[in-house]
Design a protein around this nucleic acid. Structure first.
Lengths: 152, 152
DNA sequence: CTTGGATAGTTATGTAGCATAACTAAAGGG
DNA sequence: CCCTTTAGTTATGCTACATAACTATCCAAG
């Protein structure tokens, strides 16, 4: 009977997993997500409410189903995001003039203001995350991420 | 009273969000994660049980707390992953010889075998995700991901 | 015009990933 | 020997996200 060897201390290496992009991406995304959540928290926004607000500011009159499609989330969840943005007074559900089932999402003045401030904070967060990388590398990363996304 | 304009169709653009690495990363990660889950499912593995199995194969005698530390997950959740690996007969909890509170995690022959097969599948998945990217771009991505992870 | 199937938004509900708190047993230092 | 810390576990809660079912409305074929 052979003694089961024990890993003494400190030596636990994830080198084998580091070979995989997915592993590195999950770890990096966890860090990024946590930092972004902290960045948005003072504004009363979360990742997805910020994304939704951005879409509504940049695409006035957007309908919830278009928002769901654009963000690749379910319509059922969009309801929750818009509820929150509406309760905060940043977004209104205006009745659509062409389809009585639908709403035209509009942002309010307050909504545009909080968006601009949050956007600046998110931009700073982005720079923080990528600090030390050259422009050409950042471009490569974005290209690669969009390539990966296209594999879905 | 001004008519609220409506976004007619198709025009919903997330261009503003595309400026942010976090947004691109979330989308890419969602796609990657889904593909990886499909890749691992035939082996009865999930992302984290695969990671745990890899760590145990590559670091025989690893203790659960070391595993938690290495994967940046809570000890409480490691219990669940090891439970699953143990139920499948791929990992054993051998009593530690130096600390009666602890276990030395060992993988079985079956564990090593399923790991090798799953690892090959994950490698193929990785290549699939990065197909079409040049080496220099892949290197940029890995560098950027590890840089981001280091910001946490 | 009407009628049947699709679509928009909503509601309720389930699941999975991950974190926290509290517990037991054992280690380890004064 | 205490007293504190640590290893593993258990119970529990939260958040993100998906699914199913429902109502109201649209739209196109008959």
């Amino acid at each position: 009977m052979e003694k089961p060897k024990e890993k003494p201390e400190g030596g636990a290496s994830d080198a084998a997993l580091r070979d995989f992009v997915g592993y590195n991406m999950k770890r990096a995304f966890n860090v990024l997500q946590a930092d972004l959540a902290r960045t948005l928290e003072p504004f009363g926004l979360r990742m997805l409410t910020f994304s939704a607000l951005s879409m509504i500011v940049e695409n006035p009159g957007l309908r919830p189903s278009q928002l769901a499609e654009a963000l690749s989330v379910e319509r059922a969840n969009v309801v929750v995001y818009v509820d929150q943005l509406e309760e905060a007074g940043w977004v209104t559900r205006a009745p659509s003039e062409t389809d009585r089932r639908a709403y035209a999402l509009q942002c309010t003045l307050a909504g545009r203001q909080v968006y601009e401030k949050a956007r600046a904070a998110v931009r700073a967060h982005d720079r923080r995350m990528l600090d030390g990388l050259r422009e050409v590398e950042i471009a490569a990363v974005k290209k690669a991420l969009m390539r990966i996304e296209g594999r879905g």
